[in-house]
Design a protein around this nucleic acid. Structure first.
Lengths: 177, 177
DNA sequence: CTGAGTGGGTTGCTTCACGCAACCGACTAA
DNA sequence: TTAGTCGGTTGCGTGAAGCAACCCACTCAG
């Protein structure tokens, strides 16, 4: 019985993607983080930039603060006002967010080209999100990737595929490429 | 009419992240893609792996097929049955998905460690999602990143900060039919 | 020829989260 | 004094998600 019990969590998944999505997966949340990466900091600016309902925005900002992705930074005392800034943990989200952005650039941008570009501040050259091998240092195409069980998967062995299954042979009708 | 007009789309955003999220951002969708990356292919297997409602699963699989992320591959004719496989476009999602997974590994994994590991098939070494500079070839920490307007952002100058303006016009982003 | 099981859904009902609009409280600038 | 700013909260209505049940074409064991 972890989390909200209904609706927004993926309770029983032993998976870092599911756990990331519990923090980031709701509507608007990732766009808020994008906005912060682009320099937006204040409630009303998020609201105007996104067109999100104010109560929902309140909810999402609060969750991001609770999750440690954002922090409130006071900029005035009377009345108390604050901005939202990325924590170190939040800044690391640049990797998946830029990766998602570039996937969208490749497959869903108009002929005008990408709406935004990522550059290396030091040398000005474009930056790309990619999978790189820590062994040979080369980029790894998605097809050369093996995703295997890790130490955190101890609980629950891989799901049995119905012991009395006869399905296997039928599957050979169209052999995998 | 663009998108669903209500609820699931981010109509007026000129942003590749928003456009990616229109395809991938709904609940369960990204977990379905994760499952396909891990080798799950059939309706009932998704359903057991995720615990998602069957009608929702039907909807998500259909959307992913429509979006060109998955394709149906027939494996039997009477009755017609098929599996779901990643297209080339879908395979590219390994980058943002692994990035999200490793963010979750760093910040939300138990002390047991990551539930899953990504390895380079050729040399067996771990694979990491990262931002790399196409100029100097070095990894780029999130803090050294500049995200600047690109050619696709022609529409709409950077948002005014309403010195005196009335907010009504902005609020009416979806004019009544 | 039954009866059980399978795969891939569809239908109906209920609940919940989102969108909208109004309101608030402490301040500031005209 | 009124109008506006900023960061919310509250209340209400509705559409989408979740759940369970059902369905149909087919296969297989007995």
């Amino acid at each position: 019985m972890v989390g909200d019990m209904l609706g927004r969590t993926y309770d029983d998944q032993v998976c870092s993607i599911a756990r990331s999505l519990e923090v980031l997966g709701e509507r608007w949340t990732l766009l808020i983080v994008r906005d912060v990466l682009l320099g937006v900091r204040r409630f009303d600016d998020f609201q105007h930039s996104l067109g999100v309902a104010r109560n929902v925005l309140t909810d999402r900002l609060g969750r991001l603060v609770d999750a440690g992705v954002l922090e409130r930074v006071s900029y005035q005392n009377r009345p108390p006002r604050h901005e939202y800034a990325l924590t170190a943990m939040g800044r690391e989200l640049a990797v998946p967010i830029i990766a998602l952005m570039q996937w969208g650039d490749r497959h869903h941008a108009g002929q005008a080209g990408p709406p935004r570009l990522a550059h290396h501040r030091d040398c000005g050259a474009p930056v790309q999100a990619a999978l790189v091998c820590t062994g040979c240092g080369r980029p790894v195409p998605a097809g050369d990737l093996d995703v295997v069980p890790g130490p955190g998967l101890a609980t629950r062995p891989p799901r049995e595929r119905f012991p009395h299954a006869v399905r296997r042979k039928v599957a050979q009708m169209h052999p995998p490429p």
